[in-house]
Simulated assay, not measured.
Amino acid sequence: MNLRFDDRVAVITGAGRGLGREYALLLASLGAKVVVNDPGGSLTGDGNDPGPAHAVVDEIRAAGGPAVANTDTVGTAAGGEAIVGTALETYGRIDILIHNAGIVRRASLKDMSYDDFDAVLDVHLRGAFHVVRPAFPLMCAAGYGRIVLTSSIGGLYGNHGVANYAAAKAGILGLCNVVALEGAAEGVTCNAIVPGAVTRMAEGLDTSAYPPMGADLVAPVVGWLAHETCSVTGEVFVAIAGRVARAVVAESPGVYRPEWTVEEVAGDIDAIRDLSTPVTFPVVPEGHAEHIRYSFGAADTQSSDGRAHV
């Protein structure tokens, strides 16, 4: 079965270079009409250059596909509206939204400026909201939509010198969950990609020992998440160096007591932390409620020694 995107309209942010460019070229080669968004700024988000976005559009058109450039920033609400507006003005609809735009401003937590913290959140996290907010109601009204948001290994596990980036990428996961929940009854899916590829964001890092880590190893995963046959929502997918995996939030079963003291927490800490039988709560249809029901159910399983493992 050939999975194509004929007549689908895709908006891809940060599509002038790296991963976003690869996504745009892939979807266009499979029939999608693509809005290539990229203001063309530096890695730190400074300046602008319409060249990268227009170069990708030229590449798509040279191959016979339809595409249009947009150079607005995702960092403002007005920019997000304009990006989605380009899809409506040019193609009359939006079916796919891939938020890939990102910048990096590295500094230790001791030294990071408030401006650098905000600038990174503006593009990654607020930027996601700035494009999701205008696109989501349109998708719901149409009864169809595919949204892919970009998190990172840093968002899952943290990293040195990027508190701003890590916080933004972790926030993306919370936003993704809500979009998935509210879109479930409307035909709109939302998933997160955690990509690993050697792009300009790797500048300054020693990548000499890395295995092949091209953006081409990530793009097919994003392509499936953006396709009408995508059968999941509210999930997180890792794609790095040819490995594709699902990431989840997991809990230990835990320990229940009707009352706790600090000493009892200390005494039970090994059991509290025991992940040998992890518990997960899928976002859709109602992970939030399932979590509460599971936790409340602990009291019903209380053992004779005064405590209960959930």
Rank of each mutant, 00 (worst) to 15 (best):
E235H: 06
D216W: 07
L25A: 03
N100H: 04
G267C: 00
H291C: 06
P285T: 14
N177T: 14
L30R: 11
C176G: 01
G242Y: 09
A77W: 09
A168N: 09
K110R: 11
P253E: 07
V132T: 06
P253C: 04
D7P: 05
P278L: 09
G183F: 13
A10M: 06
A308M: 02
T13R: 06
V249L: 13
A142R: 15
S113A: 08
D38P: 08
I12C: 03
A119V: 02
F296D: 03
L275N: 01
A215Q: 13
G267A: 10
M112V: 11
H288N: 13
A167L: 01
H288T: 14
V162Y: 07
A245C: 04
M139S: 05
D6E: 15
G16R: 00
L181G: 00
A202T: 08
H291P: 00
A77H: 06
P282C: 13
P278K: 10
H288Q: 13
G161F: 00
H130T: 13
P282A: 13
P66K: 11
M201K: 02
A55M: 08
P282L: 15
R106W: 06
G242H: 09
M139G: 03
S304W: 09
I98H: 09
V84W: 02
P220S: 08
A167D: 07
G64E: 15
L275T: 03
A219P: 01
N37S: 10
L181T: 08
T44W: 04
A245F: 15
G18E: 04
S151F: 03
A245Q: 15
A55E: 15
V222L: 11
A185R: 08
V11N: 06
G154A: 09
R17Y: 05
V11P: 01
